[in-house]
Simulated scan of single mutants.
Amino acid sequence: MPKAQPRPEPFVQQTDPAALEDLRTRLRATRWPDAPEDAGWSLGTDLAYLRELVAYWAEDFDWPAQEAALAALPRFRVPLGGLGIHFVHARAAASAGPSLPLVLSHGWPDSFWRYSKVIPLLTDPGSHGADPADAFDVVVPDIPGFGYSDRPVGPPLDSIAVAGLWAELMTVLGYERFGAAGGDLGSHVSRFLGLDHPDRVVAVHRTDGGLPRFTGDPADLSPEERAWIESATAWGGTEGAYAAIHRTKPQTAAFGLHDSPAGLAAWILEKLRGWSDCDGDVERSFTKDEILTNITLYWLTGTIGSSMRVYHANAAVPPAQYERRVEVPSGFSIFSGDVVRPPRAWLERTTNMVRMTEPPRGGHFAPFEEPEIYAEELRAFFRPYRTAARG
Rank of each mutant, 00 (worst) to 15 (best):
A180M: 10
A313I: 06
A133G: 15
E376G: 15
A90P: 01
E327G: 01
D289A: 11
G107D: 14
V12H: 15
L221G: 07
E230K: 12
A232E: 13
P33Q: 02
V54H: 09
D16Q: 12
D158Q: 00
G274T: 06
L53E: 11
P223M: 12
G256C: 01
Y148Q: 12
L23D: 13
T350F: 03
L70T: 05
D259V: 10
G237P: 04
I291W: 09
V162Y: 03
K271I: 11
V326A: 10
G179T: 12
L297I: 14
E52W: 09
F61V: 01
A388R: 15
E224P: 10
L102A: 03
L297K: 12
D150T: 11
P10V: 00
P384G: 09
A203G: 14
A375C: 02
V317Y: 15
G302M: 03
V282P: 04
E323Y: 08
I304S: 00
S276D: 10
S111G: 14
V339Y: 08
D137T: 09
E370V: 07
A35Q: 15
P342A: 11
K271M: 13
A4E: 10
E290A: 09
S307H: 04
G331Q: 07
L100R: 09
I291S: 02
R31M: 05
P6S: 00
A388P: 04
D134C: 03
D134H: 10
W346S: 15
L257M: 07
L100A: 07
G182M: 01
H89R: 13
R341F: 04
A93F: 01
A180Q: 00
V201F: 05
R284G: 08
E37Y: 11
P371S: 08
E376K: 15
T293P: 08
R26E: 14
L378N: 04
L27V: 01
T252I: 14
A163R: 05
P371V: 07
E372T: 14
V12Y: 11
F332Y: 12
D196Q: 09
P319S: 09
D131Q: 09
G280Q: 03
A130N: 03
S336A: 15
V317R: 12
P125G: 14
P155H: 03
R284S: 13
D220L: 07
A29Y: 04
V340S: 12
M170V: 05
H246I: 06
E323D: 04
R273C: 03
G209Y: 01
A93S: 03
A243S: 03
S99P: 05
V326I: 09
H128K: 06
L104W: 08
D60F: 11
D110P: 10
S285L: 08
L70P: 06
L195C: 10
L53N: 01
P98N: 11
T30E: 12
A366P: 02
R213F: 14
